[in-house]
Amino acid sequence: MGDVAVGARSGHEGPEEPEQGGAGPAGAGEGREPEVTESGADTPRGHGRTSAPKKPRPFWKELPLLIVIALVLALIIKTFLVQAFSIPSGSMQNTLQVSDRVLVDKLTPWFGSKPSRGEVIVFKDPDRWLENEPTPTPNILQKGLSFIGLMPSADEKDLIKRVIGVGGDTVECNGTSPLKVNGKPLDEPYVFQGNTPCSVDEGGQFKVKVPKDKLWVMGDHRQASADSRYHQTDRNQGFVPVDNVIGRAFVIAWPPNRWSTLSVPDTFHQSGLSAAAYATAPAALGLVGAFPLVLWRRRRLSAERTDG
């Protein structure tokens, strides 16, 4: 009445020795061949099977998707980040030549940054400044490339000038003397060779105060630029609304031999140029002076609590 071993046959006292070469109960391996997995190990059918690796799709099938992604990215970059513009005239010579391609930063205005003196900006026509200027008619291919930002816009009436005065500034020209901003004469090495910073023609003599959120702009080719000076009778009195600014031109990208950055000239960094400098300086100094006093007071209060 003892225990019966698992798998023992009836009528035998003990387990039957497996036949030589067997791997389990009789018939378990009959008529079956082991499978070979990718690692080379023998595995019974239906256990541990791994599927064969999928073949990569042909490149020509992936190409349309890559093109769509590239176009979408180009459109996003053109709309929110950077756009190329072509220079159609000589009003900014010698800083910019006709047919130069410049890249314009469109991102910083999204964060509330406003144009500063000395920057070269691209802006929408404030009030029919380009009314009498011919507009080229682009073909379908040019329109498509312009739309995604791979070519400069050809059918848009935009202008490019240098910011001379911002809101609160007083800008004046008297005779052929240097241009003045808030009473400070500007040294302007970027003015076209042979031009005078101020001219004695009609519109060339002026003294204006720039309203808030407006700009006074002028071309570097002073005697060949229809800028703020010559539009003082329009609805904006020659000023450019900040909202019309598309962005700041920061580099000449084409042709390659003209590649250079468009930085703000040193003349706009001279001390005392800003009309608001005297108003903001005391506040800044007061803030700096108050910091040590506040720190000393906090330490004293902390020490009194510790002693108590």
Rank of each mutant, 00 (worst) to 15 (best):
V4D: 10
P15I: 15
Q20R: 13
G22I: 03
A23V: 15
A23Q: 14
A26C: 12
G31Y: 08
P34V: 11
P34G: 15
V36S: 09
T43C: 11
T43V: 15
T43P: 08
P44W: 04
G48M: 06
S51I: 10
A52P: 08
A52V: 09
K55Y: 08
F59C: 04
F59Y: 09
W60R: 10
L63A: 11
L63F: 08
L66A: 15
L75H: 08
L75N: 09
I77F: 00
K78W: 01
F80A: 04
L81S: 02
V82Y: 09
Q83F: 05
I87Q: 04
Q93F: 10
N94L: 09
V98E: 12
D100I: 06
V102M: 07
L103Q: 00
L107P: 06
L107W: 12
F111I: 05
G112P: 07
F123P: 00
D125Y: 05
W129C: 02
L141M: 10
G144P: 09
F147T: 12
I148Y: 09
D155E: 11
D158I: 08
K161E: 04
G168R: 02
N174M: 12
G175P: 02
G175N: 02
L179T: 01
G194W: 07
G203P: 00
Q205C: 03
K207R: 13
W216V: 03
V217C: 03
G219N: 04
R222D: 05
R222P: 00
Q223D: 14
S225Y: 04
D227K: 08
Y230R: 07
N236G: 08
G238D: 00
G238L: 02
G238Q: 05
D243I: 08
V251I: 15
P255M: 01
R258I: 02
S260Y: 09
S260D: 13
T261K: 11
T261A: 06
S263V: 00
P265Q: 03
P265T: 05
S271M: 11
S274I: 05
Y278V: 13
T280P: 04
A281K: 00
P282Y: 02
P282E: 01
A283N: 10
A284C: 01
A290S: 14
L295M: 13
W296R: 15
R300P: 08
E304D: 11
T306S: 14
G308V: 07
